[in-house]
Amino acid sequence: MLDEIVRHKQEQIRSHGKDIMETFQAAEVLPPLREFAEALNVNGRVSLIAEAKKASPVKGRLISETRFDQLPVLYEQNGAKAISVITEERYFEGSPFLIQKVKSRVSLPVLRKDFIIDLRQLYETRLLGADAVLLIAHLLPKDLPLFVETAQQLGIEPVVEVHDRYELEMALDTPTRIIGINNRNLKDFTVDTRVCLELVGLVANKVQCIAESGIRTVEDMLMLEQYGFSAALVGEALVTATDVAAKTGELAWYWKNEE
């Protein structure tokens, strides 16, 4: 599945890459950016990054268009500190223009999640006004430092996603300030929440860590706090919740339930 997604992404870039660069070079003013790193580890707690996600390659459509449009405001009103937006179109039913749509509705910083494999996508990300961008280490085995540095030069916060020790070592060899440890294996889309717990101890304190995938409960959030995570990125548990507002509030303000 991952290879298929990347092939489709390569086709898109071949078709639109030149237009992206021409638009960037012609832009007189770029959208203002919000500080993403400051939204993590607020008051020493694990911040909630709530994901706006329409569909997945495994489960298909997760939420109606009407409910999807309500997500950003519900997330902000109920304690999320940042919003992740999936912009991949064919398999996740996203769109790059969702970045602008979400930022127009909330004051939170926005992370663009996509399959970034070409530097021109970073220039597109800056044009869209995304405050941070996900860089999947597995897809950038040779060029990860270049992509991290280019994102930083553009003013975008790079979040380097890893799934194993080798990818983590790649990430630590870059100047990234944030590493996302994904419990999901992108080769088969299985999830094992032990992955993030095993890898986080190898990360220096100066680098913030985000736990990704498989986080669903207050107990999960408390565990991440014990292991030193700065944030948790949660998608399906929020999107598929019967009451999105209540579930967001539960995970965002989980420490109230410690007593």
Results as ranks from 00 to 15, higher is better:
49 I>W: 06
112 R>L: 13
255 W>I: 12
64 S>M: 08
79 G>M: 06
122 L>S: 01
205 N>G: 12
30 L>D: 01
55 A>H: 01
237 A>P: 00
184 R>S: 14
157 E>N: 13
163 H>I: 02
38 E>L: 11
26 A>F: 01
76 E>I: 01
92 F>I: 03
161 E>Y: 00
103 K>P: 03
212 E>P: 12
27 A>E: 07
87 T>M: 08
217 T>G: 02
108 L>G: 03
21 M>Q: 05
206 K>N: 15
215 I>S: 09
61 R>E: 13
196 C>P: 11
13 I>H: 08
257 N>G: 05
25 Q>V: 00
53 K>I: 04
76 E>D: 03
142 K>A: 15
81 K>Y: 03
171 A>N: 04
13 I>E: 06
102 V>D: 01
57 P>G: 08
208 Q>V: 09
92 F>H: 09
125 T>F: 10
228 G>N: 12
185 N>V: 05
128 L>N: 03
127 L>Q: 05
238 L>F: 02
6 V>A: 10
249 G>A: 08
168 L>T: 10
162 V>G: 11
252 A>D: 04
215 I>N: 12
121 Q>S: 10
90 R>P: 05
121 Q>W: 13
190 T>P: 12
115 F>M: 02
60 G>L: 04
92 F>W: 04
255 W>H: 14
258 E>K: 15
259 E>M: 14
155 G>A: 02
42 V>A: 00
58 V>K: 13
251 L>H: 06
97 F>D: 08
118 D>S: 12
258 E>L: 15
13 I>F: 02
27 A>I: 02
66 T>H: 15
71 L>Y: 01
202 L>P: 09
169 E>I: 02
208 Q>L: 13
56 S>A: 06
167 E>F: 06
238 L>G: 02
202 L>V: 09
224 L>T: 14
52 A>N: 11
193 T>S: 11
185 N>S: 09
232 A>W: 13
97 F>T: 06
256 K>Q: 15
34 R>V: 10
230 S>Y: 05
186 L>F: 04
60 G>N: 02
47 S>E: 11
79 G>H: 08
101 K>S: 09
229 F>S: 13
